[in-house]
């Protein structure tokens, strides 16, 4: 069976060469090529096919609302998430209890249900409380709903980011005479935020997709526009393929950006 030593080694090294080139072939991102082909095809339909022109011009105006709701919602969600995340690991019992209740409440209820609850039950009384007469605009309700929902998820991201740092960082900082707050601001948070940026990026992408749920509020973002258009014209294929094109283009480019950053972070 087993031959003399030298041929065995020679055979082994050939096998290594073969398997190395095979794994390189296997690692090639074919999925990305396929996905780009699909996007290219959908893009071609959206912008160059006359049958899709109606769907395109109906949906395109919603793009600004989708992007705006996501950006505003995300900025607010990061703020809420940071406060709630720090609250959850705070030594103050009241802060910890409030934060944990909020986070577990949000995480325990489906997003669609929360959107209704927040936009229809929570925002109007808050709006009145601010002394504003008119009814809250749909876009404000929508962004507020996204912010309050994602704040709960992002809080957990920040908590994990802080807890992933070795306790020695806080100890070294405190042993130099810095207060807990100074240590948090100068030592813990800068490192934690850098580490959680990829996770935040993924939450941004998830939020962009979940902004489609805002259509249930009648907010005229792209999903709502596609529904209205398709219901009116019965062009369901056109409406939803154009819609898919817009989402996929945005999420894929963002996702590649996040992956690039995560790789860069891993190397540093």
């Amino acid at each position: 069976m087993g031959g003399p030593g030298e041929p065995e080694i020679a055979r082994d090294s050939t096998r290594t060469v073969v398997s190395a080139s095979r794994s390189r072939l296997e690692e090639f991102p074919y999925w990305l090529i396929l996905l780009l082909l699909i996007i290219g095809f959908l893009g071609y339909l959206t912008f160059f096919s006359s049958a899709y022109a109606g769907a395109r011009s109906a949906i395109l105006p919603g793009l600004g609302i989708t992007i705006r709701a996501t950006l505003i919602g995300f900025a607010a969600a990061v703020t809420i998430g940071l406060l709630a995340g720090l609250g959850r690991i705070s030594h103050n019992l009241v802060l910890r209890t409030i934060s944990t209740t909020y986070i577990e409440f949000i995480r325990g209820v489906p997003i669609l249900v929360l959107i209704f609850t927040i936009a229809l039950l929570l925002v109007p009384p808050l709006w009145d409380g601010l002394g504003l007469r008119s009814r809250p605009p749909a876009e404000i309700r929508a962004a507020a709903a996204l912010a309050i929902i994602y704040g709960g998820y992002i809080a957990e991201v920040f908590r994990a980011g802080v807890e992933s740092l070795p306790p020695g960082q806080m100890e070294a900082s405190r042993s130099l005479g810095m207060t807990h707050g100074q240590s948090m601001r100068s030592i813990i948070l800068p490192q934690a935020v850098r580490n959680v940026l990829p996770a935040l990026g993924n939450d941004f992408i998830a939020m962009l997709k979940d902004s489609s749920l805002l259509s249930v509020l009648g907010v005229r973002e792209i999903t709502q526009q596609a529904r209205l258009y398709s219901n009116a014209t019965f062009e369901f294929r056109e409406g939803f393929l154009v819609l898919t094109f817009f989402y996929l283009t945005m999420t894929l480019s963002l996702s590649l950006l996040v992956q690039w950053y995560a790789r860069r972070l891993a190397r540093a």
């Binding site: 070294a172 900082s173 042993s175 490192q191």
Partner: peptide, 15 residues
Amino acid sequence: RREVGMVFQQFNLFP
């Protein structure tokens, strides 16, 4: 603590 310096096994420098 300002007056009491401490050096740790794991250095704990701020990376």
